[in-house]
Design a protein around this nucleic acid. Structure first.
Lengths: 239, 239
DNA sequence: TGGCCCATGTGGGCTGGCGCACAGACGGAT
DNA sequence: ATCCGTCTGTGCGCCAGCCCACATGGGCCA
């Protein structure tokens, strides 16, 4: 099974939503890249050279505090892109981006992106709308961190992650996940145990699989649905 | 003392940073408006008609959870604008914006803003850079909510608020402030008491004045400085 | 097949922030 | 000058989530 036959840029929903003529303008510059768990796409202050459009990979954007604690501000999967600072003008951000699920994506050179963005067509419009959705997502995360329990946040994270997955289970250790959410590993272990007992999820060393999304939704806060709804409002072509 | 003699659009730092020719294109459409404590500039889902450029007023953007709890995601003063969803394309947002400090600002009709934004000049560039700064601010707030104590967050809030003020004290009750930060009123009372004792702030019924910003900084988390630094990096013309 | 590393399970003690309840006191309005 | 509503002070008990320490066991590699 060759790589060429199984991968296509239109697996990324943003790219898929572009009108054909607009897509053709950049398609030659789209470069398929493997994205491996732990790959650091950018670090604070580092100049970006590419924007990434994940297809099967998932990326986490997060902040690191001065004491070393982490907090994921949002995830990016096939519904989005990484590197909005390229067209927003800042070229870099104070946050970090790391691959959270191994997979593939397409990257686009800074120049090509700017060129396409600058022509004020559908691509610009789409990227700005996606950025607005991203803002809503980050803001929702802030409220979620402030008010919701670990159980709620964990459910929310699981649900939004399966939405970004074609299928199958996640290769994530509880340790890593706790790090992303900025909570103790033990707290995750405890909640995960409850969820397994309830039949919502299954897991073994380094793997989590969602068995009952509906059940999970009863545990999640409204943030999951709110973010999804806003993305659908802004970019109805997606999902 | 007439209103005309004491108010000018260039009291807003974004407007002031525009090149003269660019500023002239919109200046005729800028309308001075009073902004009173509690004024709701927009609610979730409500179609915006104007963008606001505060001069002496301060606005809070916040989320309300399904249980009625609030969480401020960011504030906007003379350094920024309210209503980015107008040029981002979504026209509305799931958040709310309310005036937190009485003052004035200039508003600009949706049409005029779009027209100026669409010409891809310095104004577009500036608004996008400001939006990126806003994203950084919201993301930092998320991390802050996750990891920092009420004392740290309170200090941070006070410091970033005085930065938006020409001078003088704040007309804010502890109750309102607790609501914004999404914490108990009693928690604010307690920390405020400690700060007063330390000589950092003074207050009486509904008023807070910052006496020792340097002292407050020793209590604040890095978020205050980080946000300020990022704004300075993206828009060096401002402060 | 055996060994080792790292992910997961479990328990105990601690504390920041919550919820509730009520007392005092400032200050605008009559 | 008085009154009353609202803002501020304070004291409980409570619990989610923290930090720390250690036991167990799965899975990869030699």
């Amino acid at each position: 099974m060759s790589v060429l036959s199984t991968h296509s840029p239109i697996q990324n929903q943003l790219l898929a939503a572009l009108p054909a003529t607009e897509f053709d303008r950049i398609s030659a510059d789209l470069e398929l890249v493997p994205m491996l768990l732990g790959d650091m796409l950018y670090e604070p202050g580092q100049q970006l050279r590419h924007a990434y459009f994940p297809t099967t990979a998932i990326v986490s954007l997060y902040y690191v505090t001065s004491t070393g604690a982490c907090a994921e501000t949002t995830g990016v999967g096939r519904e989005g892109m990484v590197g909005i600072s390229l067209f927003m003008g800042g070229n870099t951000t104070p946050s970090s981006a790391v691959v959270q699920r191994t997979g593939h994506g397409y990257r686009l050179k800074h120049q090509s992106l700017l060129l396409a963005f600058g022509s004020a067509g559908p691509l610009q419009r789409m990227l700005l709308l996606y950025t607005q959705a991203l803002i809503a997502q980050i803001a929702q995360t802030a409220a979620c961190y402030r008010h919701h329990s670990i159980e709620q946040q964990f459910s929310r994270w699981l649900l939004s992650t399966v939405d970004r997955l074609p299928a199958g289970d996640l290769n994530v250790t509880q340790e890593l996940l706790a790090g992303l959410l900025g909570v103790r590993r033990e707290s995750i272990t405890e909640v995960a145990g409850r969820f397994r007992e309830a039949g919502y999820i299954g897991y073994r060393r380094g793997h989590i699989s969602i068995l009952d999304p509906i059940g999970l939704q009863t545990c999640a806060c409204e943030c999951y649905g709110a973010v999804k709804k806003e993305l659908g409002r802004l970019l109805p072509q997606i999902a």
